[in-house]
Lab assay of single mutants.
Amino acid sequence: NRKASRNAYYFFVQEKIPELRRRGLPVARVADAIPYCSSDWALLREEEKEKYAEMAREWRAAQGKDPGP
């Protein structure tokens, strides 16, 4: 049972969880929050997504994983 790799979207969703909880939505973990975040993610510009892509690269580097292209 390996841990899933964390991509840019994972970090975006993780950042949104406190806001979703404040709105009273039932989000205990990232998987619960995904349905509420997909439309917001789709509206982000590539420059805005880069922040989360960098977080994912840093996480992979800390895990000793290949950052890929």
Rank of each mutant, 00 (worst) to 15 (best):
N1D: 01
N1S: 01
R2D: 14
R2A: 04
R2P: 13
R2Q: 14
R2N: 08
R2E: 14
R2K: 13
R2G: 13
R2M: 14
K3N: 12
A4M: 12
A4W: 07
A4R: 10
A4E: 15
A4F: 15
A4K: 10
A4V: 12
S5R: 07
S5L: 03
S5F: 02
S5I: 15
S5Y: 05
S5C: 02
R6M: 11
R6S: 07
R6W: 05
R6Q: 04
N7D: 15
N7F: 07
N7Y: 04
N7L: 08
N7S: 13
N7V: 03
N7C: 04
A8E: 06
A8W: 00
A8P: 07
A8Q: 06
A8T: 05
A8F: 00
A8N: 04
Y9T: 02
Y9A: 03
Y9F: 15
Y10W: 08
Y10R: 05
Y10T: 04
Y10G: 04
Y10S: 03
Y10V: 04
F11K: 00
F11H: 10
F11G: 02
F11L: 05
F12M: 03
F12K: 01
F12Q: 00
F12N: 02
F12V: 01
F12A: 02
V13F: 03
V13D: 00
Q14T: 08
Q14D: 13
Q14F: 06
Q14N: 06
Q14H: 02
Q14K: 11
Q14C: 09
E15D: 07
K16R: 13
K16C: 04
K16N: 14
K16V: 04
K16G: 02
K16W: 01
I17E: 00
I17P: 01
P18D: 06
P18W: 01
P18R: 03
P18I: 04
P18G: 06
P18Q: 05
P18Y: 02
P18L: 03
P18E: 06
E19K: 02
E19H: 03
E19V: 07
E19T: 04
E19F: 00
E19W: 05
E19R: 02
L20P: 00
L20I: 02
L20M: 05
L20Q: 01
L20G: 01
L20W: 02
R22V: 01
R22I: 01
R22W: 03
R22H: 11
R22N: 09
R22D: 11
R22T: 07
R22M: 07
R22Q: 10
R23H: 04
G24C: 07
L25S: 02
P26R: 04
V27Q: 00
V27R: 01
V27G: 03
V27H: 02
V27E: 01
V27C: 12
R29V: 13
R29F: 04
R29W: 04
R29A: 08
R29G: 13
R29E: 15
R29C: 14
R29D: 15
R29H: 10
V30A: 06
V30C: 08
V30M: 08
V30R: 03
V30I: 02
V30T: 06
V30K: 03
V30E: 06
A31M: 06
A31T: 13
A31P: 12
A31I: 03
A31V: 10
A31L: 06
D32S: 01
D32P: 00
D32R: 03
A33F: 01
A33W: 02
A33C: 03
A33S: 03
I34G: 08
I34M: 14
I34F: 14
I34L: 08
I34S: 07
I34R: 09
I34C: 08
I34Y: 11
I34E: 10
I34D: 14
P35C: 03
P35M: 08
P35A: 04
C37K: 02
C37P: 00
C37F: 03
C37L: 07
C37E: 02
C37Q: 02
C37Y: 01
S38R: 15
S38T: 05
S38L: 09
S39K: 15
S39E: 11
S39T: 14
S39V: 08
S39Q: 12
S39A: 11
D40G: 01
D40V: 11
W41Y: 05
W41Q: 00
W41F: 06
W41P: 03
W41E: 01
W41K: 02
W41L: 00
A42H: 12
A42G: 13
A42I: 07
A42L: 10
A42Q: 09
A42R: 11
L43G: 14
L43V: 12
L43E: 14
L43N: 15
L43S: 14
L43F: 04
L43A: 14
L43C: 08
L43D: 15
L43P: 04
L43Y: 14
L43M: 10
L44V: 09
L44T: 07
L44I: 04
L44D: 03
L44P: 01
L44R: 01
L44F: 04
L44Q: 08
R45S: 14
R45W: 04
R45Q: 13
R45M: 11
E46Y: 05
E46C: 11
E46T: 08
E46F: 08
E46R: 09
K49N: 01
A53C: 13
A53E: 14
A53R: 13
A53V: 12
A53K: 07
A53D: 10
A53Y: 15
A53G: 10
A53F: 11
A53Q: 08
A53I: 07
A53T: 09
E54T: 15
E54N: 09
E54H: 09
E54V: 11
E54S: 14
E54D: 15
E54A: 09
E54K: 13
E54R: 10
E54G: 11
M55V: 08
A56C: 13
A56D: 06
A56R: 03
A56S: 12
A56M: 08
A56L: 06
A56T: 05
A56Q: 07
A56G: 06
A56V: 06
R57V: 10
R57M: 12
R57K: 12
R57T: 11
E58W: 03
E58N: 00
Q63A: 12
Q63Y: 07
Q63N: 13
Q63M: 06
Q63C: 07
Q63W: 05
G64P: 12
G64D: 15
G64K: 13
G64F: 07
G64C: 14
K65V: 09
K65A: 08
K65R: 11
K65G: 11
K65H: 07
D66S: 11
D66F: 09
D66V: 13
D66N: 12
D66P: 11
D66R: 12
D66Q: 14
D66W: 09
D66Y: 10
P67T: 09
P67L: 13
P67K: 11
G68A: 09
G68Y: 02
G68I: 06
G68E: 13
G68K: 12
P69W: 14
P69R: 15
P69Y: 15
P69C: 14
P69G: 15
